[in-house]
Amino acid sequence: MRPVVAALLRKDLRLELRTRESVPAMVLFSVSTFVVFRFALDRERLEGDLAAGVLWVTLLFAAVLGINRLFVAEREQGGFDGFLLAPVDRTAMFVAKALLLFGFLSAVELVAVSVYSVLLLGPSPFQAFPGLPLVLALANAGVAVVGTLVGALAVQTRARDLIVPLLALPLLLPIVIAGAEATAPLLAEGGAGALPGRWLAILGLYDVVFGLIAVAVFDFLLED
């Protein structure tokens, strides 16, 4: 399966490098959302709960943008047909897309968190290391798995752009709850608090449960 995943991933990365469709849009969207929050909340600096909340809402909506685009090229350019004609395991498509989404999210977060700490974040972002990258990585894994499922479900429907956010927001809410609760003490004014372990456990559990379900059901979304 590994060469298939690698081939699909190479294809998708090359596509992204040439078209620059997803990641720049997600980054731009995140930065605009920070600006919107600055005026909507009428606060120049954020810390603690509020800082964590704004960060997670922004990353969630940016992720929805990425999920929306994830399978569009496959459908419109006949990528699904080509893949289904090849004698390979169909789970490879899921693994490749989930890895791709994970990579996209990590790239977006690298830029978005830096911009966030310059524009809005009160406390220094360095106090949140290494907790914040760990929480983000666990959350990204969950978003990647669920996002790939939702993207594959929605891409064959008439109202793709509507279905993706409607399905993704409730499904990803546990990640936002756990992520925001885990990052709030890290972004507290006057030094980071301890990283709450139980939220990491919830994130890990979510990743494992949905990872297993996704591997079990993804094949049915490609069958034709």
Binding site: L149, L153, Q156, T157, L167, L171, L173, P174, I177, A178, I202, L205, Y206, V209, F210, I213, A216, V217, F220, L221, E223
Partner: peptide
């Protein structure tokens, strides 16, 4: 098929959501 996939995902989501 898609509705069934949704039903499976949702069925697993119910306990997970209550827990978190």
């Amino acid at each position: 098929r898609y509705a069934a996939v949704f039903a499976v995902i949702g069925g697993a989501f119910v306990p997970l959501c209550f827990m978190s």
